[in-house]
């Protein structure tokens, strides 16, 4: 299947604009609005109620935190009891370092596979692509052994290495396809000018920036949201990520509704904010066929 490029052209699903078309359009909007509410209402309810007094959460769950209903008590409890700032820092370090490794090393390998004809090229490509479909979790028993042999249990480094290994296959696969589309003339001109192969790589890299952004978003989300590896490789207080921290904190405070709602909101808002910021490139990545 060819990959559609650039902006998709809008197209028809129903008959040409005529009276029945208006009715149809209305029906389409009704279903979409209905489902959009299903998707977003639970999230809104959590955020709204996190700013209310305990009584107001139960008596007026659907109202925004107006004066009289407003209370920051949940956030106070949370900041006193949990080290969310540290959890955030841990998550940011892990996700940032793993992403840097994935993007840089993935781009290098993708460049080599796209650029050079060498013996075993196809086999190396296939080998690196195996990991796209096989979940890394299935090797957990051995991963824990390796990490404890390397004395990396309860370090952020363990998570960074595992997430890099997890994200590389897809990154190599996608970046390789985009590297292929960079015009040959440009690279050959650079070589004639005497640039080394490494310089040629740095020349090509900025040209595939949209693909790099797509890969960044796709690898970032599962890393940030993962519970499994933090739980197994780095459950210590000093290395907890936001996802693990939220899971354990909320587990302990199941009767303190203010604290639960506040910590859910706090765990959710950065992800949703980043999503709103990057949703264009994320959705463009999905809809222009990075996955084919």
């Amino acid at each position: 299947m060819s990959t559609p490029s650039g902006l998709p052209t809008p197209r028809v699903i129903s008959a040409a604009p005529s009276p029945p078309y208006r009715g149809k359009a209305l029906g389409v909007h009704a279903i979409l609005v209905g489902y959009a509410l299903v998707a977003i209402l639970p999230v809104l309810l959590i955020v709204m109620n996190s700013f209310k007094t305990r009584a107001a959460i139960f008596t007026h769950p659907y109202l925004p935190p107006l004066s009289g209903l407003f209370s920051p008590i949940g956030y106070q409890t949370m900041f006193e009891r949990a080290h969310f700032a540290r959890y955030f820092a841990n998550s940011a370090i892990v996700a940032g370092a793993a992403m840097t490794l994935i993007l840089l090393l993935g781009a290098m390998a993708g460049f080599a596979l796209a650029e050079y004809r060498f013996r075993g090229n196809a086999w190396v490509g296939l080998y690196l692509a195996l990991g796209i479909m096989i979940p890394i979790r299935l090797g957990t028993v051995s991963i824990l052994r390796i990490m404890s042999d390397l004395r990396l249990v309860n370090t952020l480094f363990a998570l960074i290495l595992v997430y890099a290994a997890q994200g590389l296959p897809l990154a190599v696969f996608i970046l390789q396809q985009f590297m292929r589309q960079v015009p040959r003339d440009l690279k050959d001109a650079a070589r004639i000018d005497g640039m080394s192969e490494y310089r040629v790589f740095w020349l090509v890299l900025p040209l595939v920036r949209p693909a790099v952004a797509t890969v960044a978003v796709f690898t970032m989300i599962p890393i940030w949201n993962d519970l499994w590896f933090p739980l197994i490789l780095a459950p210590g207080e000093a290395t907890k990520t936001v996802t693990l921290g939220a899971q354990q904190f909320i587990g302990q405070f199941l009767s303190d509704w203010n604290a639960i709602l506040a910590s859910l909101t706090l765990a959710m808002v950065p992800v949703l904010a980043a999503y709103m910021l990057f949703s264009r490139s994320l959705i463009r990545g999905l809809t222009t066929g990075a996955f084919k």
Binding site: A112, G139, V141, S142, I146, A164, A165, Q166
Partner: peptide, 16 residues
């Protein structure tokens, strides 16, 4: 170009 990615991937995914 290929070795760093292949090494991390092999050590922490394929080998385990």
């Amino acid at each position: 170009f290929i070795l760093p990615a292949a090494a991390i991937y092999t050590a922490f995914m394929i080998y385990p």
